[in-house]
Design a protein around this nucleic acid. Structure first.
Length: 505
RNA sequence: GCUCCGGUGGUGUAGCCCGGCCAAUCAUACGGGACUCUCGAUCCCGUGACCCGGGUUCAAAUCCCGGCCGGAGCACCA
């Protein structure tokens, strides 16, 4: 059987291997999302609705991936909707709109439709008017604190029972800029004795005298998320809503609107909070501040949990997808290590990453007793036949300080080159080239010839690591390579020295 | 405090709706071994969990009650 296999041509072997690994992938790939209740093939409409006040982060990725995955599962539609209706407290960033588009695309979740809430404020006004006319909404002129007292007491405020005409009039005044910020809001009538105070007559529109990055100073009355989202989900025909449980109460509020208009509320499911060990709690606004302070170099700083940063680090979209699909859509909070993402990514990247040497904290070593310079060829990949790279076996080489310290006085194999005995004084004694001479085990180390060592810095999540890389990496710009015995890294710059970004071990 | 929601190995997850086939799935992590001119990959093997207490039942991870723990919301933020 084995002999039979050996007799096959390389191509045939390749084919067998790939067929075998394909099968394995298929079974392993089963991060199946649970079925959606009430979902019909071709009818499902999902949406992801971020506020673009910064670039998408790992947190956003979950929303993008899970929603788009369900849309795909049911052959449905995936909508990207910008809930950008607060130009002050959660002010959108103009560039961020495009960042979301880019990252969705990159995550293999291209939206079938894109909606900008701020461009549809006029439409929300129409629905507001209808609610006022039906006496399901009213303009409330209570100061915030005063209303809070009514709410806590479960009592109607003085404005609650005014006529539709009066309310319409006040509404017009709001729109006309006759009221200052805080002087009037439009509230949806719910139930002042609702057991959950958060549901009692919630605010649908408020006055904000601030220009909006996308629509300028066209409006002074902006809808709140609950109103905007309620209307949009219906207008867009959203069938299923999947989002974080921080928005769980929204459903209770929004249902009133659906009831007043006689609409059906979409199926809602919430997932718990995700905490990633490696990234502390970083809010978008905190990151923004630290970028401005110069703590981070930008939104794609490798230390950040933004999609931009992960992409720069060389993560594959598919790995990120699998990572989130593996978390499922449970309502319990998860606290997960990035190691899981690393593992997913490694599976993809290992078979295509070219291998190179990177010597961090280099120590210069002179090899004594070596006869002549040798030309050495090393494979670009340990198991796949994708070519070789050339190194010169010279008398002067660099090895890392770690190896120097731990192998001092002992024999090691310079991978692909020769065996030496490391001396205490920064020198080494040549022992021969034969691999057989080298002890099997953990004594094969990587190295670099002085003449082919180029300065290299690696940006890691914990800071910068400096050393030398072999000049051959110049051919690997913009790709993920494995610096042997170090980590996978994405090479992003090769002029004037090499700069790479750490992906993962 | 009030209102919701959750608690399966170190971590994440399946199972829970419709009790038995669950001495509980898969992944990751960890430990051991094989292979390898990388500390990567691959291949074996192994460790390890149903929050606690009652109840219902012939039978409970699954149903009910109570407790404990955790989270979210209680904004003119999203």
């Amino acid at each position: 059987m084995i002999a039979e296999f050996e007799n096959l041509s390389e191509d045939e072997k390749e084919e067998l291997f790939s067929r075998y690994s394909e099968d394995k992938k298929e079974t392993r790939k089963s991060y199946q999302l649970p079925p959606l209740p009430n979902a019909e093939r071709g009818e499902v409409v999902m949406r992801f609705a971020p506020n673009p006040n910064g670039p998408p982060t790992l947190g956003s990725a979950r929303g993008i991936i899970v929603n788009s995955e369900y849309a795909r599962m049911y052959d449905g539609k995936f909508i990207l909707r910008f809930d950008d209706t607060d130009p002050r407290t959660k002010r959108p960033l103009l560039e961020a709109y495009d960042w979301y588009l880019e990252d969705c695309e990159w995550l293999n979740a291209r939206p079938d439709e894109i909606v900008y809430a701020s461009k549809r404020i006029g439409m929300y006004y129409d629905y507001a008017v209808r609610l006022i006319e039906m006496s399901h909404a009213y303009v409330c002129r209570c100061p915030r604190d005063e209303f809070k007292r009514y709410r806590d007491a479960g009592m109607a405020c003085p404005h609650r029972n005014r006529s539709a005409e009066e309310n319409l009039e006040d509404w017009e005044k709001m729109l006309g800029g006759e009221y200052a910020e805080g002087e009037a809001v439009l509230r949806i009538k719910t139930d002042m004795s609702h057991r959950d105070p958060a549901v009692r007559d919630w605010v649908a529109f408020r006055i904000i005298f601030s220009d909006h990055p996308l629509v300028g100073d066209e409006y002074v009355v902006y809808p709140t998320l609950d109103f905007e989202s309620a209307i949009e989900d219906h207008v867009l025909g959203v069938t299923h809503i999947l989002r974080g449980k921080d928005l769980a109460d929204s459903e209770k509020r929004q249902r009133y609107i659906y009831q007043y208009f006689g609409w059906d509320y979409p199926v809602v499911r919430h997932w718990g909070r995700v905490k990633i060990h490696e990234f502390g709690k970083l809010s978008t606004s905190e990151i923004r501040k630290k970028i401005e302070e110069g703590v981070y170099a930008g939104w794609d700083d490798p230390r950040l949990p933004t999609i931009k940063a992960l992409r720069r680090r060389g993560f594959e979209a598919e790995a990120i997808r699998k990572f989130f699909l593996s978390l499922g859509v449970g309502e319990n909070d998860v606290s997960v290590s990035l190691k899981n993402l690393y593992a997913e990514n490694r599976k993809i990247v290992d078979e295509k990453a070219e291998r190179y040497f990177f010597v961090w904290s280099p120590v210069r070593i002179e090899i004594e007793g070596m006869e002549a310079v040798e030309d050495i060829e090393l494979p670009l990949h340990p198991s796949r036949n994708i070519g070789t790279r050339k190194l010169r076996g010279e008398r002067v080489v660099y090895i890392t300080r770690d190896d120097y310290e731990s192998f001092k006085g002992r024999e090691v194999r310079l991978k692909g080159f020769c065996n030496v005995k490391i001396q205490e004084n920064g020198k080494a004694v040549y022992l021969g080239d034969e691999i057989e001479e080298a002890r099997k085990g953990r004594n094969i180390i990587h190295w670099l010839p002085e003449s082919q060592a180029v300065r290299c810095e690696v940006l890691t999540p914990d800071g910068k690591v400096e050393g030398f890389a072999e000049s051959n990496v110049r051919g690997a710009v913009n790709s993920v390579v494995q610096f042997e015995r170090y980590a996978f890294c994405r090479v992003e710059e090769v002029e004037r020295g090499v700069r790479a970004v750490y992906t993962h071990p």
